[in-house]
Design a protein around this nucleic acid. Structure first.
Lengths: 299, 299
DNA sequence: AGTCCTTACGTAACTCGTAACCATC
DNA sequence: GATGGTTACGAGTTACGTAAGGACT
């Protein structure tokens, strides 16, 4: 029964060094990273030096602080490892004492009729649990579920009909699709293109797009070359709808957002074949409640 | 561009402690784990105590040494984290200096005509590289590719036609199917069932099976309740074939193993719909060579 | 000159091994 | 009483902070 997949001493890396390395890479500065982690700048310098010595290669250029190719590789791995480390601790904590609360997180566009109904069912079931709801961007929600900060996460995105959303590593959590909707190009009401029955996204490469990285990032659409004429930082959907209605640019949105009265028209996207999907993420403690979100389980 | 998915100080766990914990859990003994890791037994005891203190819960029972429920959870996470840690180091090493070698690993049943031809192509392409080949069980191969010990891995298994093999976490490596074959029940030539056109596996629950954990573990078939009458520890396929031919029991094998002259007959499996598939695992340094294994890329 | 990373050095904390201790078979 | 995990304690090492140093803008 003994697996001999033993990990050599030399394979193990100090996770604290990885954490510091990620902080430096993310902030682009030794001193800001030090502040964030409550170290002195000197300590950060030493830690990075130790990590570089351990791996036998420079990971960062100084002045400006940037990742070397080796550093890029490590950065990808390190982020994931830190999440899994946090996930492990959270999982053990839950094994000891199941949380007496329900923490739910969702991305702005994950709020659908199905979700609203399901949340009502959950609160009925879990009436005695203190419930909290957090809205955040996709990475934030996924990471929070992985680390046990949230029990249940609902994230949305655009994908081909049969593809799952390409989520970052969810720790030990499972993803299940809970709602689907058509993906449309949202245009101001009265826009000439609004009369078309369907559009090809790549034909719209010359249009002005609104990039809303906290709601529906252009970069995450499986289409390249869409230029953002305006960038909207914020998680409020009505504001985004208003910006589109006012003619500041187009956006790809789920059809249900483009309702009568929104001042928008939605034109279905012909190519690529996209749909908007909401997926639910649940760790073990969320699995039981997750069943209540199952759209096939009506009241 | 700054992601605020910061990992708290308290989230980070000492990876060395995890390594020790896994060793203890795997060996079921503090002292043997200590030997394996070149520590004193006292050090191991202290490390486990430190980890338990950190997590605030017992992870192991002593006398006998066994995992508590919390320990079980941690064990699963820890194994994965250690592999990813090793994978990170290996990936960085490759980013610095691509290995001047080709290390290939395969499971016993992964050796097919396609694979043989592809290996010939690879050696022609990579004639200047020292090549090594390792045969091992699936977990061994997958882990070795993840940790960079191998550049290319070929693993086989049985799955439904459209399902991928359910492999353990492959670090950063990618899996691609390279060969498929029918899955058959291998019977001694002349066996009465040999005349049947197709069989339902669950109808054979009462038969005597040979479990060959190093070649084709019964436990990994997506069917429960197959009793092993004989267990064969070893990686040599002809011996397994001989055991079946001699009437010691049945096994599920890829059709190509059941050739004329093997002394076996193979009966196709009707339910569940299984095929035998070989998948290739390659980290980044193996990707270029992996292209040569692509069955669609003829010479 | 100012910003920001590195290096030197002293102190505090930690980790491991030895050895004595204790529990279970 | 043998086997095997725990605890006490001291030595060696590590890791951090302070402070001085150096490079680039």
């Amino acid at each position: 029964m003994i697996s001999d997949l033993s990990i050599r001493e030399t394979d193990v890396m100090d996770a604290h060094l990885l954490r510091t390395f990620v902080a430096v890479a993310d902030t682009g500065s030794f001193s800001t990273a030090a502040q964030r982690l409550s170290y002195t700048q000197s300590a950060v310098s030493q830690q990075i030096a130790a990590l570089e010595a351990d791996l036998g290669t420079p990971l960062l250029t100084r002045r400006p602080v940037a990742l070397t190719p080796a550093g890029e590789r490590l950065h990808r791995h390190a982020q994931l490892i830190l999440v899994r480390l946090a996930a492990a601790r959270a999982d053990v904590a839950r094994a000891v004492a199941p949380p007496g609360r329900l923490a739910l997180g969702l991305t702005p566009l994950a709020w659908t009729g199905e979700v609203a109904a399901a949340l009502a069912r959950i609160r009925a079931e879990a009436a005695r649990l203190r419930t909290s709801v957090l809205v955040g961007d996709r990475d934030r929600i996924v990471t929070a579920v992985a680390t046990g900060e949230l029990d249940l996460g609902l994230v949305d995105g655009f994908a081909a009909r049969s593809d799952p959303l390409r989520l970052p590593d969810p720790g030990g959590a499972r993803a299940v699709g809970v709602a689907e909707d058509a993906a449309v190009v949202a245009l101001p009401a009265g826009h000439p293109l609004g009369l078309r029955a369907g559009l090809d996204l790549s034909d719209l490469a010359d249009a002005y797009w609104i990039d809303a990285p906290d709601i529906a990032p252009l970069s995450r659409l499986p289409v390249d070359g869409l230029r953002a004429g305006l960038s909207y930082r914020g998680a409020d959907v009505p504001t985004l709808v208003g910006l589109i209605a006012a003619g500041h640019g187009l956006a790809v949105l789920p059809a249900r957002v483009v309702t009568a009265g929104s001042g928008l028209v939605g034109v279905p996207i012909k190519t690529p074949r996209l749909i908007h999907r909401v997926e639910m993420l649940a760790d073990r403690s969320g699995q039981r409640l997750a069943a209540l979100l199952d759209p096939t389980a009506g009241p």
